[in-house]
Measured scan of single mutants.
Amino acid sequence: MSGNGNAAATAEENSPKMRVIRVGTRKSQLARIQTDSVVATLKASYPGLQFEIIAMSTTGDKILDTALSKIGEKSLFTKELEHALEKNEVDLVVHSLKDLPTVLPPGFTIGAICKRENPHDAVVFHPKFVGKTLETLPEKSVVGTSSLRRAAQLQRKFPHLEFRSIRGNLNTRLRKLDEQQEFSAIILATAGLQRMGWHNRVGQILHPEECMYAVGQGALGVEVRAKDQDILDLVGVLHDPETLLRCIAERAFLRHLEGGCSVPVAVHTAMKDGQLYLTGGVWSLDGSDSIQETMQATIHVPAQHEDGPEDDPQLVGITARNIPRGPQLAAQNLGISLANLLLSKGAKNILDVARQLNDAH
Score class of each variant (00 low, 15 high):
262 S>N: 15
171 N>Y: 14
168 G>S: 01
60 G>I: 00
169 N>W: 05
147 S>P: 00
356 Q>P: 15
299 I>V: 12
173 R>W: 03
230 D>T: 00
259 G>F: 12
109 T>D: 03
38 V>W: 01
298 T>A: 08
159 P>D: 07
198 W>V: 10
134 L>C: 08
164 R>S: 11
67 A>K: 15
156 R>E: 11
115 K>H: 08
321 R>G: 13
69 S>C: 13
66 T>A: 14
166 I>E: 02
105 P>N: 06
285 L>T: 09
177 L>Q: 05
70 K>F: 10
70 K>G: 11
99 D>Y: 05
342 L>Q: 08
124 V>P: 03
228 D>E: 15
48 G>F: 07
271 M>S: 11
98 K>A: 04
142 V>D: 09
106 P>R: 12
318 I>N: 07
309 P>H: 11
247 C>A: 15
68 L>P: 09
317 G>M: 15
226 A>S: 08
248 I>P: 01
103 V>G: 12
249 A>S: 14
59 T>P: 11
141 S>D: 07
172 T>Y: 09
267 V>I: 05
260 G>S: 00
190 T>L: 13
65 D>P: 09
60 G>P: 03
152 A>D: 04
241 P>K: 01
304 Q>N: 15
104 L>C: 09
324 P>K: 06
177 L>G: 01
227 K>V: 02
292 Q>Y: 06
49 L>K: 07
42 L>V: 07
134 L>R: 03
256 H>N: 04
79 K>F: 06
97 L>E: 04
65 D>T: 10
237 V>G: 05
280 G>Y: 00
114 C>T: 14
72 G>T: 09
205 I>P: 01
178 D>A: 07
56 M>T: 13
155 Q>C: 11
359 D>C: 14
334 L>R: 00
212 M>L: 12
266 A>I: 04
123 V>A: 12
161 L>Q: 13
137 L>M: 12
136 T>S: 14
319 T>I: 09
54 I>W: 04
118 N>G: 04
341 L>I: 00
160 H>M: 15
206 L>S: 04
315 L>A: 07
164 R>L: 11
40 A>E: 09
84 A>D: 08
43 K>C: 08
44 A>S: 11
263 V>K: 15
214 A>E: 05
319 T>V: 01
200 N>A: 12
168 G>F: 03
93 V>Y: 03
278 L>A: 05
131 G>R: 10
73 E>G: 06
258 E>F: 06
335 G>Y: 00
96 S>V: 00
254 L>W: 15
177 L>E: 00
220 L>I: 00
91 D>I: 04
74 K>V: 04
204 Q>N: 01
334 L>Y: 05
45 S>G: 08
220 L>W: 05
140 K>D: 13
315 L>E: 01
125 F>H: 03
200 N>D: 14
239 H>S: 12
206 L>D: 05
43 K>G: 09
143 V>N: 03
230 D>P: 11
335 G>C: 07
250 E>T: 04
146 S>W: 11
243 T>L: 00
292 Q>T: 11
305 H>C: 14
66 T>P: 10
48 G>K: 14
122 A>L: 05
218 G>C: 00
278 L>T: 06
231 I>P: 01
73 E>C: 07
230 D>M: 15
164 R>H: 14
117 E>G: 11
75 S>F: 00
98 K>R: 02
282 V>M: 08
118 N>K: 08
255 R>G: 14
228 D>H: 02
293 E>K: 12
108 F>N: 08
104 L>I: 12
122 A>Y: 04
61 D>V: 02
43 K>Q: 10
123 V>R: 01
175 R>C: 11
238 L>R: 02
255 R>P: 03
71 I>W: 07
177 L>P: 01
263 V>R: 06
310 E>P: 04
307 D>Q: 04
38 V>Q: 02
86 E>I: 13
47 P>C: 07
176 K>W: 10
115 K>F: 11
178 D>M: 12
146 S>D: 05
148 L>V: 12
38 V>I: 15
213 Y>D: 00
176 K>L: 12
163 F>Q: 10
306 E>R: 12
192 G>Q: 00
309 P>E: 03
90 V>E: 05
68 L>W: 07
271 M>Q: 09
314 Q>S: 05
315 L>R: 04
281 G>A: 12
69 S>P: 13
160 H>R: 14
87 K>E: 09
226 A>M: 15
344 S>N: 14
90 V>C: 11
298 T>K: 08
331 A>L: 03
102 T>D: 06
196 M>A: 12
350 I>D: 04
203 G>I: 03
90 V>L: 12
199 H>Q: 05
47 P>G: 07
329 L>R: 15
266 A>P: 02
266 A>R: 04
72 G>R: 07
87 K>I: 13
163 F>E: 08
190 T>F: 01
96 S>R: 03
105 P>E: 06
251 R>V: 08
55 A>V: 12
37 S>W: 13
337 S>F: 00
46 Y>N: 14
217 Q>Y: 03
174 L>A: 06
303 A>G: 04
160 H>L: 10
340 N>V: 04
292 Q>I: 15
197 G>F: 07
213 Y>G: 09
91 D>T: 03
69 S>M: 14
256 H>L: 09
188 L>F: 08
154 L>H: 09
353 V>A: 10
109 T>L: 05
125 F>M: 11
124 V>K: 05
303 A>W: 02
210 E>Y: 04
226 A>Y: 13
338 L>P: 10
276 L>Q: 05
